[in-house]
Design a protein around this nucleic acid. Structure first.
Length: 661
RNA sequence: GUCUCCGUAGCUCAAUUGGAUAGAGCGUCGGCCUCCGGAGCCGAAGGUUGCAGGUUCGAGCCCUGCCGGGGAUACCA
């Protein structure tokens, strides 16, 4: 049972006698902020009284009188300006706890009207190695996929990989001109990545070199402009003075940004020119950028040679990213990249054009969404389609073939504008029944608060991050963190230690990302990623291992305790707190699903492990040395239920637990 | 220029969408293994929620204006 939902339902009935729109108000039942206010609180009396012109405390009393919850709560208290405080009855808590104990679904009801939800996540560019930037989409998307699935929805996980864009033109060009046969034979993916980087670097080189004189001229112009502005006599009145100050500051900032851009360009140029061989290659291919674009165009036009190369490249690239997913245990129901939608693109453009939704502008075919400044370009002036076109075709396909009710795009916040235009265009096109949602997440920043890079300027590879996390975890295991207990680290054989390190290490990385509110940017820190104390997956895993320890010491199988005749009894505060917390699992999942925010679940799990630790350490809650046999069974059941919920909750985040660690 | 997001404890982040005395973790300081696993527990210090107004019973959250910082902004995805 979802207790919160139940209380809302009860309140709704009570409100029927007070107002004519109870549905609008019953949502104002919330978990209490402070234990002294009870377990839940209804905050509806104040705003409702205002609307009805009544006294809020009197209205609260009226609501309480109409409220039929004697079987669930003690008599409600009315506090402060009109809060209705609800305290769950001990016998209700016991009854529910015992019910959940024997419930496969741990008290979480399945959705009564399941939806068909497509979760579009991860979506790396297959031509490039995965890096930390891919972690958020992958991990958050996977968690949402699992949570929504457990809640009973029909979920389709789709990895919309980038397998058809300009990067393949670059690789094809690189393959034709710079291939190292031996390296390709040894490790095709690494060699393709090298070719991509090389062509990219050379294209940049020429572009930057061409742009540099103009940039320098611009820099000089702005410097003069700034000097002139600074030399001008300061205006007398305050507003004008402020405006001038602001203007000067802006000029300074612009100039600094430009200078930085020029420095970066110079550094890139120098990197090529310092390497004689590289400089020679660059000189030999002055039009490399357009040549690469032409290779892309030929591929898109169906050129047999390029298509054959593309096929040859795509398989090992997909296999390479698959090893990453295997390690992270990320599952997709389909991996349908951009290339899949290629046959539908022309039709999308034709239809939107014919229906007057799109029109030509400067040679490109665009949709001008009312209220938006930038156009949504569905065909470039050179005739090529864009990812806008692909995304539209993808919506059509998912609605037609998958009967999607909802499509979630787990994508970086920087693409918010793109999705706004995409969704608006889809609506103009007639897709009004499908719910399209951008599950946006913030950028990973470095210590300098700018998008994350290592000192060398490269992004941190995903694999090395995972490796380091596992190595770190292995070190803790080898140190024998729990050596005092008689279950020391040294008691584990090498295979067990590897397993523990892998579970703990990967759990730490995933949890660090999931416990963050996805909307906010966050500063990447190895320390945080590798942490094993505090609000970490390790903390929950440790709680599970402690439960395992208790049962080992008791010589009892966890499943057996559940099947025995005993029952949970709540005889003191730590037991009660723990039980109440365990009964909230359903609420936590609903909340996480409603906002598509896994951090609500991590928060719940941390609170739960915390409740358990207090229970575990409390002298009044000894399990094995409980005062009576009944109490011992009751507490064993509480331990078992705690571990089941922690374990299950973590599994929905893609994180394993261990019986011992 | 326009649009958009953000500013919370020394640091990294929460805050149940307008609720009661703003919470965690890390770090710092002080207590806990004669007791089921110390990867733990208990406690302390630490805040004018960037600033100034406004809306109301009530504001970190909503409105206005400033200050500061990201991001996006016509043919890369």
């Amino acid at each position: 049972m979802n207790i919160l939902a139940e209380l809302r339902q009860r309140l709704r009935h009570a409100l029927e006698s007070v107002c004519d729109d109870p549905d609008a108000w019953c949502g104002l039942v919330k978990p209490a902020q402070d234990p002294k206010f009870g377990d839940y609180q209804a905050n509806c009396a104040m705003p409702l009284a205002k609307r009805l012109g009544a006294n809020p405390r009197e209205l609260a009393a009226k609501i309480v009188a109409a409220l039929d919850i004697a079987d669930v709560c003690d008599v409600p208290e009315i506090a402060g300006p009109g809060f209705i405080n609800l305290r769950l009855r001990p016998d209700f808590l016991e009854r529910e706890a015992n019910r959940v104990c024997s419930d496969e679904r741990l008290g979480v009801p399945a959705a009564t009207n399941p939806k068909r939800i497509v979760v579009d996540f991860s979506a790396p560019n297959v031509a490039k190695p995965m890096h930390v930037g891919h972690l958020r989409s992958t991990v958050i998307g996977d968690a949402l996929y699992r949570i929504l699935g457990f809640l009973g929805h029909h979920v389709v996980g789709d990895n919309h990989v980038g397998d058809w864009g300009t990067q393949f033109g670059m690789i094809i060009f690189g393959y034709k001109h710079f291939l190292d046969q031996a390296a390709f034979a040894r490790n095709s993916v690494a060699e393709l990545a090298r070719l991509y980087r090389l062509v990219n670097q050379l294209s940049d080189y020429h572009d930057l070199r061409e742009a540099l004189p103009a940039q320098r001229a611009e820099q000089a112009r702005r410097r003069d402009q700034l000097q002139a502005a600074e030399a001008a006599p300061p205006p007398a009145d305050k507003p004008a003075l402020d405006a001038r100050k602001k203007e000067l500051k802006r000029l300074h900032a612009d100039l600094a940004a430009l200078a930085e851009e020029i420095t970066a360009a110079e550094r890139k140029l120098a990197a090529v020119e310092a390497d004689a061989a590289l400089a020679a290659v660059a000189a030999a291919h002055p039009t490399i950028a357009s040549a690469a674009r032409e290779e892309t165009a030929r591929l898109h036009a169906g050129d047999p040679g390029n298509l054959a190369l593309w096929r040859q490249f795509i398989a090992p690239c997909l296999a390479a990213i698959q090893t990453m997913y295997d390690r992270l245990e990320i599952h997709f129901d389909m991996t349908q990249g951009e290339s899949f939608y290629q046959p539908f693109l022309a039709e999308v453009v034709a239809e939107l054009s014919n229906r007057g939704i799109a029109r030509e502008s400067d040679g490109a075919v665009c949709v001008f969404v009312p209220g938006a400044t930038a156009p949504f370009i569905i065909r470039k002036s050179d005739g090529a389609f864009t990812y806008a076109t692909t995304d539209l075709a993808t919506i059509a396909w998912r609605v037609r073939e998958l009967r999607a009710d909802t499509i979630l795009y787990v994508v970086d916040a920087r693409q918010a504008d793109h999705f706004k235009l995409l969704f608006a265009t889809a609506e103009l096109w007639g897709y009004r029944d499908v719910e399209l949602r951008h599950i946006s997440f913030g950028t990973i920043l470095g210590d300098d608060k700018r998008p994350f890079k290592t000192r060398s300027g490269d992004v941190v590879g995903l694999e090395s991050l995972l490796d380091q996390a596992v190595v770190e975890a292995r070190r803790v295991v080898d140190d024998g963190a729990s050596e005092d207990t008689g279950e020391s680290g040294t008691a584990f054989d090498a295979a067990s230690r590897d397993r523990i390190a892998e579970v703990v290490g990967l759990g730490a990385v995933k949890y660090a990302d999931l416990s963050q509110n996805r909307e906010s940017d966050y500063v990447f820190s190895w320390e945080k990623m590798l942490a094993k104390t505090g609000d970490t997956a390790t903390y929950m895993q440790y709680a599970c291992a402690r439960v395992g320890g208790i049962f080992r010491k008791a010589g009892v199988e966890r499943g057996d305790v559940r099947r025995q005749a005993g029952a949970i009894r709540l005889t003191n505060p730590p037991e009660r707190e723990l039980a109440r917390q365990l009964l909230r699992y359903s609420e936590a999942l609903e909340q996480a699903a409603a906002e598509y925010r896994p951090n609500f679940l991590t928060q719940y799990l941390f609170d739960t492990a915390n409740c358990f630790s207090r229970f575990f350490e409390s002298r009044e809650c000894a399990v094995l040395k409980a005062e009576t046999e009944d109490l011992r069974t009751s507490r064993l059941l509480l331990c078992d239920l705690t571990a089941r919920i922690l374990s299950h909750g973590l599994s929905l985040l893609g994180i394993h637990t261990l019986d011992r660690m």
